[in-house]
Amino acid sequence: MKHYEVEILDAKTREKLCFLDKVEPHATIAEIKNLFTKTHPQWYPARQSLRLDPKGKSLKDEDVLQKLPVGTTATLYFRDLGAQISWVTVFLTEYAGPLFIYLLFYFRVPFIYGHKYDFTSSRHTVVHLACICHSFHYIKRLLETLFVHRFSHGTMPLRNIFKNCTYYWGFAAWMAYYINHPLYTPPTYGAQQVKLALAIFVICQLGNFSIHMALRDLRPAGSKTRKIPYPTKNPFTWLFLLVSCPNYTYEVGSWIGFAIMTQCLPVALFSLVGFTQMTIWAKGKHRSYLKEFRDYPPLRMPIIPFLL
């Protein structure tokens, strides 16, 4: 059985960083990364991007050496992705923050609204209902991160945790300040508006959870398998008939419901920014589905049925 020789060059300087002799033909890129780490321990596998061309796409960890368009002496180019952190850690951090930050404003801890309001309670029912909904949303997200989601990528750049936390924590503080303010004004149409908004919120939260469970069942634990998601017997998953990412559709719907319930401008802005970002993600995933699966359902749109 022939063996391969693998040289790894710096993608920027073309400097030879490592030479691997007698590499098995069936070795994966993940195994080559581990061998590279032995000579350069500062670059652990998650930091490494190996590619066939200095400006090309990163090879997948599961790619097999003998199936790549290389000879028995293969040249790979290395790029440092920077310090990495696990997706689970990032999600837990960015979701735990809003949960606790919101509660600080809800309980009106000292130095927020003035001494005479310390630890007082709002007289408006919608304020307490909003706290329950907000807390439920982020507790749900935390539990899904721990027990439901299966991540195709193990890590992301460390800098992302600061960007994500600034976004989630900042908006949580902004909306919580106004919703729990002693001078907060309840919704214009009173109980009817709150009940309608609560119904929207609850339905969308159930829908979002149902989609996450359906997506989880598509991917076996520990794998990166991708399949076309289809509706199940659960009615909340029937939205798969019309959109590629109904989890985002339901998520946006939840925040629209919360915005109607609280009639709070920061919540509306958070919903708008979230919708914009999720639309970008949904379009990317939709394109990926179309590219990977020739039999992908043609009627589906990325996030909004028939429109977007």
Rank of each mutant, 00 (worst) to 15 (best):
Y113E: 00
E292Q: 09
Y44A: 01
Q193W: 00
L76T: 15
L307A: 07
K291Y: 14
Q192R: 10
H40G: 02
I32S: 06
I200C: 07
K163R: 09
V23A: 10
F107E: 05
E144A: 02
A197Y: 00
E31Y: 14
M175K: 10
H137S: 06
S49C: 01
R294V: 07
L290G: 03
F306V: 07
Y44C: 10
K291C: 08
R51K: 00
L198Y: 15
K33W: 13
L50T: 12
K33H: 12
C18Q: 07
C264S: 10
L198G: 07
P305N: 14
S86M: 02
F275I: 12
F111D: 13
L52H: 00
K233E: 07
L99D: 12
N164S: 05
I256F: 12
L9K: 02
A176C: 13
R51D: 00
H149W: 00
C18E: 10
G170S: 11
D10L: 00
D217H: 14
G82C: 14
P187E: 01
I200K: 15
L146C: 14
E15P: 15
C131S: 07
E292K: 11
V148K: 15
L142Q: 13
T125I: 10
A11V: 09
V267H: 02
F306Y: 09
A197L: 10
K2D: 06
T120M: 11
E31T: 03
S254A: 09
L269P: 05
D61A: 11
T13L: 06
K57Q: 13
H149D: 03
R287N: 14
I101F: 09
P229V: 15
F119V: 09
I303K: 02
I200T: 08
P25I: 13
N180V: 12
T28F: 01
T93K: 07
G154I: 01
E144R: 00
L99E: 00
E292L: 08
F136N: 04
F78T: 07
L196F: 00
S210I: 15
M301A: 07
H40L: 09
Q205A: 15
A83H: 15
C165N: 15
L9D: 13
F258M: 05
P157S: 10
K291L: 01
L299H: 01
D21Q: 02
L65R: 04
F171S: 09
P54I: 01
A197D: 01
E94S: 04
Y77H: 09
F236E: 00
L35V: 06
L68N: 01
G274R: 03
R159C: 07
Y230F: 12
K291E: 09
F306C: 07
I260Q: 03
H115D: 03
L158F: 11
G284R: 10
D63G: 12
K57E: 10
L215F: 15
G170C: 09
H26P: 08
K116T: 13
F107D: 15
Y102I: 02
P231S: 11
V202W: 00
L241V: 12
W87S: 05
I203T: 12
Q193A: 07
A30T: 10
Q66H: 12
L183V: 13
I112V: 10
I203A: 15
I8G: 01
Y95Q: 11
L206P: 07
L269R: 04
T93S: 12
D10K: 14
K224P: 13
L129H: 07
R159W: 15
Q263R: 12
H128F: 11
L103H: 14
A11T: 07
Y230S: 13
T89L: 15
L158V: 06
N34D: 09
F151H: 07
